[in-house]
Design a protein around this nucleic acid. Sequence first.
DNA 1: GCCAAAAGTTAGGTCACACTAACTTATTTT
DNA 2: AAAATAAGTTAGTGTGACCTAACTTTTGGC
Lengths: 236, 236
Amino acid sequence: MSTARQESGTEMLTAPVEDYLKAIYAIGKGSGPAATNEIAQRLAIAPASVSGMVRRLADQGLLAYERYHGVKLTESGRRAALRTLRRHRVIEAYLSRALGYPWDRVHYEAERLEHAASDELVDRMAATIGEPEVDPHGAPIPTRDGSVDETEYTSLAQLAAGTAGVVVRVSDEDPEMLRYLAELSIVPGKKITVKSRAPYDGPITLSVGRQEFSIGPALAANVLIAPLADRGGRRG
Amino acid sequence: MSTARQESGTEMLTAPVEDYLKAIYAIGKGSGPAATNEIAQRLAIAPASVSGMVRRLADQGLLAYERYHGVKLTESGRRAALRTLRRHRVIEAYLSRALGYPWDRVHYEAERLEHAASDELVDRMAATIGEPEVDPHGAPIPTRDGSVDETEYTSLAQLAAGTAGVVVRVSDEDPEMLRYLAELSIVPGKKITVKSRAPYDGPITLSVGRQEFSIGPALAANVLIAPLADRGGRRG
DNA sequence: GCCAAAAGTTAGGTCACACTAACTTATTTT
DNA sequence: AAAATAAGTTAGTGTGACCTAACTTTTGGC
């Protein structure tokens, strides 16, 4: 057994394998092909290592691989990826709500626990905190039977001046950024209005609550928004 | 990183290494020497594998090894073992109390989580359920700074007829046995009186609560007892 | 105190997962 | 369309953790 996990029904996957599948899913959003280099970059390993692993995963039927062209998840691979994603996000939500974990550190902790927790544990966690639909960063939690909300949202960087919207999701990996976003109270559920945008990728001025401030486009790109009907005019 | 865990301060140990240390600690109870074969048996691996690993662990300073004689934990090895043991038992207690996990399955789940959970998580779990001192099977939980209650208790198999005692601990690995013990309500905290013992390792008759029944010596050996003052006489 | 049985070790092999260096295929530029 | 660059692959290594088979050391019975 060693690092692998055994689970009722399906074969057990090792932690690295689960990480590959998650990465490939994240790149291709479940359907598109993933490039070797991009997988390597996400997992912080050498491209050559990916070639080798990808072959094995293809042999196991988890993905479709064509030499020199990318890989795509098979149905079985997609299911495995979503199972891991569900674990990850339920664990994040649980750490945050039940154990008071700060939202900038849940990702890192979940990254390890997702490979060790059983489905039963994950389901109990989900039940205990009331079957959450999103994790603390707003990412949707796949259901037990493997479906996810794959709605694409606009990033704050693309939002036109004068537009208002609600933050639905922020990217979860960089703790420092998360702490900064929390300071600005740019968190899922918050209403935001884009007051103005300086040209040439300049700062974007926002109003959040009764505060007003500017952020750079790099940060804004990490915030996803559900736009609201524009009823503020553009007098500001 | 792969299967290893990084923790503030101390070097990260892999899951197998933590398992070796736990096994060696369990055998030598922290001080005595552990035999290669016994380690192998506990970890369900070949004795030859133990020889190899034990050498590496000795090189790392986790244990003292003399060829053809057993191994003993060094102070550093003992600390690592107790850290893992604390994780394990806190997790068991948490699963049981906070998530309603049945007591016959917490061991198996904790066996995997103990290698993935950070010290911070374990401490939060402990705090959330009120800093428990024992796990659901009655095993003492090591403190953060690495001390444990190492009191030795009498097993129910050694208890003389007419003696009464309180169950302090039952062995935790066999789920089926745990379910049976729960049925008999032989659980930590319960008062038990040994009514009689048949000779030649025969059945032991007990009274627990208002019930009376007999169990075999093999089962009784897995129940540890804190004896009470004998005030019942031996008329029974 | 010798000799068989038990306990422990070395030798040599495997598998998963990473690496670097060198090579091949694909894409882009001119 | 040729050359330059980027992307991807193979070849060869290393490490951790296991295995079996064959050998050595220790122990316990007589």
